[in-house]
């Protein structure tokens, strides 16, 4: 087991290295000039040139790359070209809202989606199944921002139940955190619920056809127990996988919901940085999100062996 984890960790190295090279090159080939963005409307070309030099943007690419990699090895993410603040500080400020919202979304989604999927599979080809499936297809088909606007319109403006926007850290005021986080989480969850419910249903359908389920039923085990103890346990691997691969989807949702609900998270940080060509921030963010993605999927692979005893490494 430990050997397996180590092996998988080693395999992460080339992936992250490639991401680093790719992102670096992508940005340096991008038109757009952080110096011009920094200097504003009235700068002259000569002034821009001076700023570029002081930012190190006039150094040869290889030198810039070397500097960056050197910093990375020292655990230094660099300094934002625009804000002149260490990137690690910016990430530190902005990552918690995203993590909290994402975690809450995942928990909410699993709580909603798994029962939905189980019921759909259990009541296969009945109205319940069709309802769940329709919802899950619908969840994929409406853009996240439209869902967000509809929620705001209904719950915040018409009913006045919840705040329109913003974020309060749970450590500061948990009640406020919840009231502000509910709508963004629900918005994000629509797509995630759709994804997980679908996968749960498909996976359960497969398992429910297996012999041991039939045996359990024949032995007179209660239906709830059959479903949630025997079947779901065995259907769990694909469900876990989809939660892992769905992380990418979650990120794209996060980027949008953070804009709609004005949450100061890393999604907005990254988009703003891309639009402002703040190279160190973009590099750090893409590297970081990639690493998180790889790490989550690694964790899930490890979790397999715990959940499904058939898988052994």
């Amino acid at each position: 087991m430990l050997g397996y984890i180590l092996k998988r960790l080693l395999a992460v190295v080339p992936v992250i290295t490639f991401v680093a090279i790719f992102v670096f090159l992508l940005l340096r080939l991008t038109p757009g000039d952080p110096a011009a963005i920094l200097a504003g409307d009235a700068a002259t070309p000569a002034q821009l040139e001076k700023i570029r030099t002081s930012l190190g943007l006039n150094d040869p690419l290889l030198v810039q790359f070397g500097t960056w990699i050197g910093q990375l090895f020292r655990g230094d993410l660099g300094i934002s070209l625009i804000s002149n603040i260490p990137v690690s500080d910016m990430v530190g400020q902005r990552i918690w809202p995203t993590i909290n919202i994402a975690l809450m979304t995942i928990i909410l989604s699993v709580l909603l989606a798994v029962p939905m999927g189980v019921i759909a599979a259990w009541k296969h080809r009945t109205w319940a199944d069709y309802a769940v499936m329709s919802f899950s297809v619908l969840g994929f088909s409406v853009p996240v921002f439209v869902i967000g606007y509809i929620f705001i319109q209904v719950f915040s403006i018409e009913l006045r139940w919840l705040p329109v926007q913003g974020y309060t850290p749970p450590t500061e005021d948990f009640g406020k955190f919840l009231s502000k986080a509910i709508l963004p989480c629900l918005t994000l969850a629509t797509i995630y619920v759709a994804l997980i419910a679908r996968m749960t249903r498909a996976s359960m359908l497969e398992v429910l056809g297996e012999d041991y389920v039939r045996t359990a039923r024949a032995k007179g085990v209660s239906e709830t127990l059959v479903l949630f103890r025997h079947a779901l346990r065995n259907a769990a691997v694909p469900i876990l996988t989809i939660i892992g691969t769905g992380f990418a989807l979650l990120i794209s949702g996060v980027v949008v919901t953070e804009s709609v609900f004005n949450i100061p998270g890393i999604g907005r940080l990254t988009v703003d940085a891309i639009l402002a060509r703040d190279y160190p921030v973009i590099q750090a963010m893409i590297l970081l999100t990639s690493a998180i993605y790889v790490f989550i999927n690694l964790m899930i692979d490890v979790a397999y062996s715990i959940i499904d005893p058939r898988i052994r490494y």
Partner: peptide, 24 residues
């Protein structure tokens, strides 16, 4: 496959925004 793994690891929406910024 290493390259593909890397591409998959980059959140697609961020990659897409960066690419659009790159090419106009």
């Amino acid at each position: 496959m290493r390259i593909m793994d890397s591409l998959m690891a980059i959140p697609s929406i961020l990659l897409a925004i960066a690419l659009v910024a790159l090419n106009g």
